[in-house]
Design a protein around this nucleic acid. Structure first.
Lengths: 221, 221
DNA sequence: ACCTGAACACCGTTCAAGT
DNA sequence: ACCTGAACACCGTTCAAGT
């Protein structure tokens, strides 16, 4: 972060402006290229290297920024039951990341070892230990939950090709339904029969169903 | 697939040769570029377009190929308990995909709607219905399991930067341990205390632990 | 300290042409 | 049907130079 005023001849930019431009590019269906970002803020391509050492750093900062946007709200309310708090966090992460499906695709492009991820892990750890889990189980469960949440979001974003935020859920379900109806019932009888359920895989309902099965599994232990 | 002999003046290549070259490029730490693949098989870049319509099709075929390599073995042995069969499939998928971490990163780059994925889903569905689950729960569970397996593998591959297959587990654990030991214990006390467990997140043991918590959660329902 | 112009070594993809 | 040469419109990144 560290976006306090930059000295120097012109200081026309901030890191945040660059990240916002990258996000706009992704939302327009393009890719977050250095050259594209530079053009968007009206600067030569190599000027970006004054703010970030390379493109990987831009991507890392972008993911951090989005994760940070979700790291607030209901998760912090300690009065609510732990299951509710985890559900709230999972929903916030999903909302923040599916708002920019292009960025969600970048989620799994680098190691999850940022300060933001550590902070998220710490909160989950504390919550699960508070819920009565042994520290070791709490640590394992934290990773399981993060894997599920990020995996779900990445898989969901991968389904969408076009520009902009994800279309309404109903529309996406209808499109998937059309695809599943093509499955030959003779070769894949179970899949053909399950088409109505499978076309709802990308919904909030399925996302929460999976989350609660995982919480059941953790709790049962 | 359809790799039977191509007629024509030279037919120097097959789709499979191209995919193998792409895999080699990824294993060497490079990217699977059209130009790189062409150079590797000794052909002009645009010759690749005789075999695949565009780069996305190459990536899709590559993922299909790897998924196909895992789609055999213990999973088919109907005499074993269903939990064992799912575990065997999960291990095979992990083995096939972590053998080429560069390719694993491509897992979430497109929609999971291939014939191979449908076949995998059908097998899982049949297995879970056979295990006594209601068809609707079996369908939801299938997606939950696929999400977990692919998410785990993608997250694990994202941790690794260098070329070639993943280094031995012990080495990767040691490297993660060194990273986690840097966490400031005052700001993140739980995380610092859990460092030994967290450095084992990328192990087979943790992978299976998570899988069985999910199966517990499904079964408890 | 910050920005520019120019260049280098790459990309994916298309088109017209050869066999 | 398959391959090539050449070109187009891009990339990320570096370097020397300006202010």
């Amino acid at each position: 972060m560290s976006t306090r005023g930059r000295p120097g001849p012109r200081r026309t930019l901030t890191e945040d402006e660059l990240l916002d431009s990258a996000l706009e590019l992704l939302d327009e269906g393009g890719q977050a290229s250095i050259r594209g970002i530079a053009a968007k803020v009206g600067v030569a391509p190599n000027a970006v290297y004054t703010y970030f050492p390379d493109k990987a750093a831009v991507i890392r900062a972008l993911v951090e920024k989005l994760l940070g946007e979700a790291d607030e709200g209901a998760f912090a309310d300690e009065s609510r039951p732990w299951r509710d708090r985890i559900e709230a966090l999972a929903l916030e992460l999903r909302a923040a990341l599916t708002a920019h499906p292009g960025a969600a695709a970048l989620l799994m492009s680098g190691p999850m070892d940022s300060a933001r991820t550590t902070a998220l892990g710490e909160r989950l750890l504390e919550l699960l230990i508070g819920a009565g889990l042994k520290p070791d189980d709490a640590a394992r469960s934290t990773y399981l939950l993060i894997t599920y949440v990020l995996g779900s979001i990445a898989l969901e974003a991968a389904d969408e090709t076009g520009p902009g935020p994800l279309p309404p859920e109903a529309e996406r379900v209808a499109r998937r339904r059309a695809g599943f109806d093509q499955i030959p019932a003779d070769a894949f009888p179970r899949s053909a029969a399950a088409a109505p359920t499978m076309s709802r895989y990308i919904t909030t309902e399925q996302y929460l169903w999976g989350l609660h099965r995982i919480l059941d599994g953790i709790y049962a232990r």
